[in-house]
Amino acid sequence: MLRFVGQVSVSDVERQLRTRPGFTTDPDPGLIDLSDALGFDVVALLLLLSAMSERGANGLPTRFRLPSDQPARHILRSWRFPRAASIAAGMPFRMLVDQADLAYFGEDLPPLRVRGEAKGPRASVLAHLVERRHFGLSAYRIDDERSLTHMMAGEAARWRGYAMLQLLEKSLHGYVSDIARVVVQELAANVVQHPESSVAVVASQLDLVARAAPDLPPALTIAVWDNGASITQTLRARLRERGTVRILPPQRVDTFAVEAHGWAPSWSTYASDWSPGPDASDPELLLASLFPGVSRKSPPPSPDVSAAERSVDAGYGLFALYKTAVDAFHGTVELRSGQALLRLSRPTESDPYRARVALDEELPSFAGDIVIVRLPIRDA
């Protein structure tokens, strides 16, 4: 059983899973107990969906115990968690909850109010968007290329509304049109790169003030999880096939200062023209996935390719993502793949990128990948 109290954060989920490393493979019924939860980080919910999906891939059922706190239940409904869980599990949400919690189904709830929210015009616009369910979880079944196109178009449209753009303009660094044009587009397009994906969930959350957990500063969070083959699995399979994942040299070389946890890097800094070999570790493969020209795809027939072709076919998606999220918006990009975790930031434009890369063998291996962008809120 995983049991959560108060604000459910990413660190809470990781801590629970470390104390129960067999959760995703234990044949006993898996219970995720949210009965004492009061609030949620949206990425923590993605981690729980991924753990549930991993159990499902092992033929093991998972059940949820819903919050006893009514506003917390309302957050889960407003964020469309029941639908996301249902799509990820492939069964109705009623079959995923404790029998006693069926009494909560169909209850009348007051308008959603976010605890501890800021005051002022930005908070009013945020409340307007929250009530209209602009944030939370959007789950998609990935059946064919059309479903991916539908996901990408729908998610981009969510961030182009007038009220949303006005709020982001007053809250973020950078050009807010790039949220839909680059950040959301590249997050959704990343799903295309993962073979065997059948489910994708896009998550978003905007906090104008700090919440209870110390690791949750005010930020716009946008993330995507899919249940396909992970980044590290995909690149390693390609390395076995052809001995390299480098299909084009980068047009510009960036430097990454690596802070390693749980593994021994070959160097303290890596350049983006570095090409991992067959003996590269999972953390190194995860780092290399950021580098332009690194891809599971085949090399282009001619080196004379356009910028658009590079972006689509030559491993430039995560490059465009971190250039926008880190450089333009002063934010971070996080990748979670198997037991490898990477967090990318940059102190100043003149500094190398700072990559905190960890191999956490105490964590169970999650299904698929999670790519997370967190963009800090600037002062009004």
Rank of each mutant, 00 (worst) to 15 (best):
P347E: 10
A51T: 10
D143K: 08
L287P: 11
L321Q: 12
G6Y: 03
D360I: 02
P250W: 07
A380I: 02
D143M: 04
F40K: 10
F93A: 09
Y175G: 07
S147F: 02
D143Y: 05
R236P: 00
A44E: 04
Q205V: 01
Y270A: 06
S35A: 12
D254G: 07
F319T: 13
A84D: 08
P195A: 15
S147T: 15
M52T: 14
S266W: 01
M95C: 03
A367W: 02
A189V: 03
P303T: 12
P364C: 11
V371A: 00
D282F: 00
D304T: 12
R146M: 06
G154I: 03
A163C: 05
D101W: 04
S177V: 08
T232G: 02
V182C: 13
S306G: 15
D369R: 02
V5A: 09
D215I: 06
E334Y: 02
S78G: 04
R94I: 05
V245R: 15
T19P: 00
G59P: 15
E169N: 13
F135V: 06
R133K: 11
R242C: 06
I222W: 05
G136H: 01
D273H: 12
M95P: 01
L102A: 07
D351A: 14
H150I: 04
V130D: 15
V191T: 15
D101Q: 09
L172I: 08
L168T: 04
H194S: 13
S197T: 15
R115S: 14
L239N: 06
R240Y: 03
Q70N: 07
D36W: 01
A57V: 06
A200F: 01
D379F: 09
H194V: 00
